[in-house]
Amino acid sequence: MSEQDLPAFALLGFGTDGWGRVLVLGAVLTLALSLASMTIGSVLGALLAWARGSRRGWLARLATAYGVIMRGVPELLVVLLLYFGAPGLMAAVAGLFGLPAPGSPPAFLTGSLAIGLVSAAYQAEVFRGGLLAVPKGQVEAALAAGMGPWLRFRRIVLPQVLHHVLPPLGNVWQFNLKDSALVAITGLAELMRVSLVAAGSTRRPFLFFAAAMVLYLALTSLSSAVFRRIEARGSQWAGRR
């Protein structure tokens, strides 16, 4: 109980009373959470982009409504809704199968789902913009040249969509990474939560929030460097065609 008397380097260190290990693990969990929600958002976002362009009016309207709601409601509210609402939903579902209530789902699952649902709304916009950027004439020309659907997609559509989609996707990823901090309210030991717990129990908030800021800056700048590399390779590919 005397850990508050420790100097800063010991509190941030990797010894038994140091929070260094926990903070680094929290940063790893933040990264995993962001990757999971980005993946969920990509799959659902692609589906939404496809639905928006669908000829069935109700489907397109549903996808539009999803986008309006998810981009108009605070992310914090979505996280809170899933966190508090999920046990009830799961109990209802389990009840349908005649099973006992399974309690609350893992925080990682609800957290990545919540951030993923928000991410999907933004990614749908990105994908839609990418699809619209492919000139119709090119697809028709490819058809005329006798290209099959797969070859057409691979040679004509995909390179151009990627070229248009990668920079804004990098943006969505950055937002995703920062939004993952909201999952802290569910108690999941990601970077934000860990720094809050450490700040509260050692009563050294400035030290631990500063440490968390440094780790977040490392995550955001490293990942933007990775995205720049992917973009460079993507445009090479698009240029080769």
């Binding site: 639905a51 939903l89 799961m90 399974p102 789902p105 649902l117």
Partner: peptide, 23 residues
């Protein structure tokens, strides 16, 4: 359709979790 998809997805996850926990 998507909302239904999420529901269905959640249903699968819930059923799986319940089965695992019970087992």
């Amino acid at each position: 359709m998507t909302a239904f998809g999420i529901r269905a997805g959640l249903a699968c996850v819930a059923a799986l979790a319940t089965a695992v926990l019970g087992g």
